[in-house]
Structures are given as C-alpha cells and as structure tokens.
C-alpha cells in the first residue's frame, strides 16, 4: 500500500490503516526522538505524541514533500519542544554544547582492546551536541537529502553540512589515539570482529 492510499484510508476513518502507518514509521520517529531526548523512559511518550499530531494534522498534509519528511518534521519539532521543556525544568540541556563531550582519558584508562569500537563510537555520538546528533541521524541513518534535512529542521543546507563535518571531526579527534597508538592492530582486530 503506498502512502497516498494509506492517507486516504486513514482520513476515511480506518484505524487499521493508521496502525499500519504507525508501524511503518515508528523506527523513523524513535530514531529522531531518541537521539534528541536520550531518555528511554520518555521516548515512548514523545513518540506517541508525534503520532497523535500526525493523525490530527493528516488532513493538512499536502503532497509537497514525502510523507516520511513530513512525519520527521513533526517528530523533530515535538522532540525539540520536549527538550526545551526539560531545559526549563532542570537547565541541564545545551543545544550546542561541546563541553559535555566525555574525556578521552576515561576510555584510554580502560583496556579498549576489550571494547567494541562501534559501541564506543555510538556512545560518543550520544555525547555530541543535539544538533550534531540530529543531522547525523537524518543524513546517515534515515538517508534524507540535505534539502530534506533543511525542510525538517529549518537549518540551512550549509549549516547541516557543517554540523556533519564537525561531528565527524570531533569523533576523529576523540579516536585519534587509535590511529596514533602502536596498539592499533589490536583495535583493528576488534573492529573486524
């Protein structure tokens, strides 16, 4: 069933079609809200809120963009609003704060030979500022184009590219010791596992 048919069925009151839509786009939504909020206990609630908004606004959807882009926009806006609410409550979240990046020393003191490199990088991605994490998710994981990301987040294309570049640069900097170190062979073996 294509998206247009799905939408027309939902607009005709078919709740099974809506359940189908939720199942089709749940991964997209949880990737965006999860990367934004980073609190598993709140991700489900926010994702539910996203789909409720999708249902309520479905009548306003015009075929100007793909349905996935439209849903991603709603997910992004809902996630950002939730983050702002959290920020007001505890004042801990900074939208562009690189100071939260975990010290490399924490990792170096551990025996990284035993750690899955992908897992380590994933943890480091979660420590990046929220805008960096968002563009990484949208571009690499969900494979949206720069134009679509601009549409979803409202960030200009140049900013999106810059965030992607900077995110990678930060990660490379944090993983520099792997390239420099003599024990690279071991890490390479780990990464090939």
């Amino acid at each position: 069933m294509d998206d247009n048919e799905l939408i027309s069925r939902i607009l005709n009151g078919n709740m099974n079609a809506f359940t189908f839509l939720v199942n089709r786009y749940r991964k997209l939504v949880v990737h965006i809200t999860g990367r934004l909020i980073q609190r598993q206990e709140e991700v489900e609630d926010v994702s539910q809120e996203v789909f409720l908004k999708v249902y309520q606004s479905l009548g306003n959807y015009r075929n100007e963009s793909k349905l996935s882009t439209w849903i991603a926009t709603i997910a992004y806006n809902t996630g950002i609003n939730h983050l702002r609410k959290l920020k007001k409550e505890d004042g801990r979240i900074n939208f562009d704060d690189t100071s939260v990046l975990k010290s490399l020393a924490d990792f170096r003191t551990e025996n990284y030979e035993r750690i899955d490199l992908h897992q380590y990088i994933r943890e480091q991605i979660e420590l990046l500022p929220v805008n960096f994490r968002t563009v990484i998710t949208l571009y690499h994981l969900e494979e949206f184009s720069y134009q679509e990301i601009e549409q979803i987040t409202g960030m200009p294309e140049g900013t999106v590219k810059s965030y992607l570049f900077r995110a990678k640069a930060i990660l490379k900097e944090k993983l520099k010791f792997i390239v420099d170190d003599n024990s690279l062979k071991t890490v390479k073996e780990i990464s090939n596992e």
Binding site: F18, N23, V43, L52, R122, I125, H140, S191
Partner: peptide, 22 residues
C-alpha cells in the same frame, strides 16, 4: 568505521504493542 557507525541504530526502542497503544 565512523561512517559505518553512523548508520547503526541508536539503542532506543519502542514496545511491540506501540501501535496499539497509540
């Protein structure tokens, strides 16, 4: 390796009955 990791899913999960809950 970094590029590969970018395409890995983050660990956030929704329950199996999520659609029914919505």
């Amino acid at each position: 390796i970094i590029e590969d990791t970018f395409t890995h899913e983050p660990g956030f999960r929704l329950p199996d009955d999520f659609a029914q809950k919505v």
